[in-house]
């Protein structure tokens, strides 16, 4: 599904990713853990095509295609999704209209028929129920005045309706209380399928109780420095990243 080789990327003049290798097979969930500033969000932005994140070396193949040369909207059409660590507020645009525009854009890209307003409402309601999102939130402007938990649930809702083949979740657990964490975790788990891969970026092991990963990586100083199974996450929770940070320095 995704094959990252020797990826180097800079933001401005600073090199953040320094030779990152990562391969994710179809249907697998990989977790990336790592200290603050390691480059986790940078990786997520490079994969989704944000301006200002310059790849200087290496390659990213997605379903055999060169992901790096695609515009962000093309990546979305091809099935790449990023749940933002800090979801962006879009004043004056209702969540409903935004979702509809997004879904119809990717459906058009994929050669599927676009939804009309009625069908779309039905389609969205199936997902909002699972994520415990009420209709009122759909009427409000995208992320404006949303609580931390609402923002993260809205990200998972977007993921659900866009039906990606490869989703990156960047600290989707941060800022959530126990109940919200469970809703988000179960919501994401419900979206697991043999055709869908995920890269779950997190700081804490607790999210991985709900979304049990197939593989766990440690990212420090712009590189993958360790890889293991779900037990690696439990170890990290106990011992922290001190060893990796020293080793990388």
């Amino acid at each position: 599904m995704l094959e990252i080789k020797n990826l180097h990327a800079k933001v401005g003049d600073t090199e953040i990713l320094k030779g990152l290798d990562l391969t994710i097979e179809a249907g697998k969930v990989h977790a990336i853990m790592g200290p603050n500033g390691a480059g986790k969000s940078t990786l997520s932005y490079v994969l989704s095509g944000r301006d200002g994140y310059e790849v200087t070396e290496g390659s990213v193949l997605y379903k055999g295609k060169n992901l790096l040369e695609m515009e962000p909207e093309v990546r979305a059409g091809e099935g790449v999704f990023l749940a933002f660590q800090y979801p962006v507020e879009i004043p004056g645009v209702s969540t409903m209209n935004f979702l509809k525009a997004a879904v119809n854009s990717v459906r058009k890209y994929r050669g599927e028929s676009e939804f009309d307003a009625m069908d779309f409402l039905k389609f969205v309601r199936e997902q909002t129920k699972i994520l415990n999102i009420d209709d009122d939130m759909l009427k409000r402007a995208v992320n404006v005045g949303f609580s931390g938990g609402e923002k993260k649930r809205a990200e998972v809702l977007q993921m659900a309706v866009l039906s990606p083949a490869f989703a990156v979740l960047d600290e989707t657990d941060s800022g959530l209380d126990v109940d919200a964490l469970r809703i988000v975790g179960e919501g994401v788990t419900a979206l697991r399928s043999p055709e869908r891969s995920m890269l779950v970026i997190t700081h804490y092991q607790r999210l991985l109780d709900y979304i049990v990963p197939d593989v766990v990586h440690v990212l420090a100083d712009g590189k993958i420095v360790d890889t293991g199974d779900k037990n690696l996450a439990i170890e990290l929770e106990k011992n922290g990243y001190a060893n990796y940070v020293e080793a990388a320095a």
């Binding site: 909207e73 990546r75 507020e89 879009i90 004056g92 645009v93 935004f98 997004a102 854009s105």
Partner: peptide
């Protein structure tokens, strides 16, 4: 904001229009 909309599949021109209208 523009990147956020584009990352959801909304083409650039439509994303710009959406932001201005909003």
């Amino acid at each position: 904001s523009l990147f956020y909309l584009r990352s959801r599949g909304i083409p650039e021109a439509a994303a710009r229009a959406m932001l201005v209208e909003g």
